[in-house]
């Protein structure tokens, strides 16, 4: 049984159809990547899994349970957590307060050890714990956003464009973190990216989304060498060769 299974998902924004019958599966322990151009429906797919907006047709199963219509808080409580696009940290609150907010639904008994784990992963956050989160650099903010999501100990972590607007060196670091999380903690990861090169390199499997439909799928390596993917998302793209 796959961890997450999307069956024929249709999502609308008013009259505009953003997803047209998408099927995606994520197995336990995988890194799965969704790539696609602007407006292909990548973010919509992640948001639909979280229940905002709701799928108008289709079914979303998480660990064998139907979460298509479940309240957002229930979905989060089941272990699905999203790092939203553009980080969306609480900028006027301190780093520590941001992390505390991430633990809203978590077990209070884990709070201290989870916090130590986050600080172990990114020591810079420990140094800046009482600083306002808005004063962090872009990369630090992204790390904070990831840590905030991890505070609730999700089993499925969904990241929406974590490399957005970051310097190439920081992008590398973020992708390494994603791989480490997956390898060391066994966190299953669903990654949405414009930076197709990096994303496909870390992915076990990947999907290419086009105009709200799955165009291609395969292992990360397969798609990296696929001529169509190369032409559309890599050659003209912004990867570092």
């Amino acid at each position: 049984m796959p961890m997450l299974e999307l069956q024929g998902i249709h999502t609308y924004y008013g009259h505009v159809q953003a997803l047209k019958g998408v099927d995606v599966t994520v197995e336990q322990g995988e890194i799965v990547t969704l790539i696609g151009a602007n407006g292909a429906g990548k973010s919509t797919l992640l948001m639909t899994i979280c229940g905002n907006p709701r799928a108008t047709r289709g079914k979303i199963m998480f660990e064998g349970q139907d979460i298509t219509r479940a309240p957002i808080s229930t979905i989060v409580r089941q272990g699905v957590q999203q790092v939203p696009e553009g980080r969306r940290i609480f900028s006027r609150m301190t780093v520590l307060e941001n992390l505390q907010m991430g633990a809203t639904l978590g077990d209070p008994a884990h709070y201290k050890s989870d916090l130590d784990r986050m600080f172990g992963m990114f020591s810079i956050l420990e140094k800046r714990q009482t600083q306002r989160a808005g004063t962090l650099s872009g990369g630090e903010q992204q790390m904070l956003a990831i840590c905030r999501a991890l505070m609730s100990r999700p089993r499925l972590l969904m990241l929406d464009e974590p490399s957005l607007g970051l310097a190439p060196l920081i992008v590398k670091q973020i992708f390494k973190t994603i791989q480490d999380l997956n390898r060391e903690n066994g966190t299953t990861i669903l990654l949405v990216e414009q930076n197709a090169f990096h994303a496909l390199k870390v992915a076990h499997r990947a999907y290419v989304l086009q105009n709200g439909e799955i165009r291609l799928q395969g292992s990360g390596q397969e798609l990296l060498s696929n001529p169509e993917v190369r032409a559309l998302y890599l050659e003209g793209g912004h990867h570092a060769p």
């Binding site: 808080s73 639904l105 999501a149």
Partner: peptide, 19 residues
């Protein structure tokens, strides 16, 4: 803290499972 977080970003609050 939830009040303040809500003031900062409602979508992020929702994604953390707050009501």
């Amino acid at each position: 803290r939830a009040w303040e977080a809500l003031r900062e970003d409602e979508i992020a609050c929702k994604s953390l499972g707050m009501n």
